[in-house]
Design a protein around this nucleic acid. Sequence first.
DNA 1: CAACTTTAGATGCATACCGTTTCTTGTGGC
DNA 2: GCCACAAGAAACGGTATGCATCTAAAGTTG
Lengths: 204, 204
Amino acid sequence: MNLSSERPSPRRRPSPPRRRRHGAVLEEALLEAAWEELLAVGYAAFTIDAVARRAGTSRPVIYRRWPHRAQLVLATLRAHAPSLRPDDFPDTGALRDDLLAGLRLWRDRSERIGPDVMSGLATELDHLPPDTLDASLGITREIVARAAARGEIGPRPIAAHVLVVPQAVLRHELLVRHHRPSDAELTRLVDDIALPLLRHAAGG
Amino acid sequence: MNLSSERPSPRRRPSPPRRRRHGAVLEEALLEAAWEELLAVGYAAFTIDAVARRAGTSRPVIYRRWPHRAQLVLATLRAHAPSLRPDDFPDTGALRDDLLAGLRLWRDRSERIGPDVMSGLATELDHLPPDTLDASLGITREIVARAAARGEIGPRPIAAHVLVVPQAVLRHELLVRHHRPSDAELTRLVDDIALPLLRHAAGG
DNA sequence: CAACTTTAGATGCATACCGTTTCTTGTGGC
DNA sequence: GCCACAAGAAACGGTATGCATCTAAAGTTG
């Protein structure tokens, strides 16, 4: 189109030439900006534009790396909120305390990330990548295995759909009800729901 | 601004003068259009623009009534997806069947509305209005009361946070996991989770 | 039924974000 | 020091938002 005339050359340079970042350095800066933006405005108001501005760059730089808003957010979470690992959960020596500690840890982590982020992701992605949700399953399994080894509960293996109940209820509370359970509520969750269920499923 | 000249008067009339709707008639037409749009494109792609077009009117007419997209959607849901009422749940004569029927009904209703609508609303509103969620509590309570009257379970009153577990798990499955439980899965939910919990809480 | 009030519906405007393309030029690799 | 790559700037065409302005049609009142 604009083949010939009409554009002398200016392509003006607005301000200081800004040292140009590259590779890992740039990527880190982008994720850092995205993280700050996420914390600042939440998921609903999170825009690629704003991240680019905050990082002092332009949209194409972001689009070259992540195709969607959701992907960028996911990458940001992975960089700044690594999944809880089994050894984050100390063995307290009692099933009840293990469960309680686990749920508390889990709640607090969710708080940092913000329910609306998880909720927004869940809305926009067809499936949340398994590691975002299912790490917790392994942890409950571990906690239960310890209890079984101690003889606190029966030895029967427990089906996944049962193991997952405590987290499902907690997550429901956080993501759907938008409510942060107090310690007292978590205790009731353990005493009235988790323990009866696990005991019943594990036998004896 | 354009005080004097510059606009003879045309303000063209594009097509047939269209009988002009008012008040309740118009409002109903708007909600109807919104409902169709919601079913057609889902929450994420739901726009005020499209609703106005579908209703054969213009955006201001909608904005005069509802300030936000979320509010319009809420009004639409209230108009077109009334909460399930206790008498939608037949008394099958057995707790297990009552629960199963209830969950199935509930799942199917959620399917009509679409997980993405609930999920989107949950993301955009600070709190879902309680009546969107909590009607179901009364229903479980009713089902349990019937069972207690039949002597199927003990007479101890059951705390709300326990009563709510089956729906919480189902809703978690639908809204967070984006998974529609099969009948078989619902059966496991009843047998492995709901019944043990309710029996334990109700005593005997 | 005429005057008046309300408001539906059309239109325009400023703003924002999207996703992409084009272009220049700084930078790191060789 | 040269070259390929990509950062960063800019613009484009699109869609949506929320608001303001104007008209004329409907409903209301005397």
